[in-house]
Design a protein around this nucleic acid. Sequence first.
DNA 1: GTCTATATTTGGATAGAC
DNA 2: GTCTATCCAAATATAGAC
Lengths: 211, 211
Amino acid sequence: MSEGSTFSTKQRILEAAEDLFAKHGFAGASLRQVTAAANVNLAAVNYHFGSKDRLIEEVFRRRLDELNARRLAALKRALGKPEHDLEDVLAAFIKPALELSLDRSGGPAFVRVLARAYAEHNERLRKFLSDNYGHVLKEFATAFAALLPKLEKEELYWRLDIVAGALTYAMADFGVIKRRSGQSERDYRDRAAQHLIRFAAAGLRAGVGDG
Amino acid sequence: MSEGSTFSTKQRILEAAEDLFAKHGFAGASLRQVTAAANVNLAAVNYHFGSKDRLIEEVFRRRLDELNARRLAALKRALGKPEHDLEDVLAAFIKPALELSLDRSGGPAFVRVLARAYAEHNERLRKFLSDNYGHVLKEFATAFAALLPKLEKEELYWRLDIVAGALTYAMADFGVIKRRSGQSERDYRDRAAQHLIRFAAAGLRAGVGDG
DNA sequence: GTCTATATTTGGATAGAC
DNA sequence: GTCTATCCAAATATAGAC
């Protein structure tokens, strides 16, 4: 091979950054740690990304482009079913993320990075995420609103905010929680998805139509 | 007055630190920012606290001692009721925190700091919180277990983890969400607590005894 | 207890050779 | 595209006068 490693410098930086941002946060992980872990030169970050902030954005873009595309495709399929319900829409939101969170090759780390982005109220990061992926959340909100017509708009958004936060938090911990030995990864993931969906659906429906 | 300000240097540092840790995280907020905001000298932090890590711990201790005492007292009262239910126990957990989150004088900031601590998987901080306040969560877990006997232990802990994360996340956003004008703070807080309690109770009960 | 001044380390970013 | 070397700003922490 002509290159020094299986993956390109850029790839290795992205992977190391994802891992270290998950562990220590965006401010807590230094470019020196990142480049050391990636086994590349310090200057490579600025060459390939321009700045630390841009590197952070690329860490998100690499996963979110595909994750949100999958979520939208799943949402479209769910809405296509003639008698789709809340659980179908929630599954469209949760399952792609859960698959990612249980994927080797960086998945678990990224979901934790995502949870950090939720906790951070960083202006720049929020703007980046809103500009690039805000439409996905809007489409889901519309779908939820149609399925919960008795819920006031204000109340709905409020609940969706909690649900999104709870799900993000829960999925971030999936990589950490150890599953029973002997249980296949697919079984585990499907059971986990069922729990999350039931949990979220119950929370969204609470007090609507059943007292 | 003999001192230069209404509050002591130590107090002012704690308040500025709480605010800036909420905004920028523990790694993101520097001692220079903190001391500048507190209007005290840079060296005062090391004199009063010894190090940045110890300052962080004191920021938690200052609020958590009282918050968790209130939670335990409320839990004791709830368990004293002859036919207490899930909602009573959840209220004991949520209401003291919600009161704090809507209190002026640092409350909203601290709840966001707490949310950050959840997202951080910092070893030192986790150990500190677990050593000092772990028994509170244990008592609540025991109370929940008694009220949800049909739920497997493993499943229960899993759900409590989500609920605690979701509630922490939701309460962190309370200081930010603007309430309708004309609505009193007390009304707002009580309504919010009701929502959170119903939401969490529905999630904990989902699929238990009702399919 | 508080200040100034400074030691020391670490961080992000860049220049210029290869 | 990658390296070494370096700049410069910012960080934590401390020493010592007051």
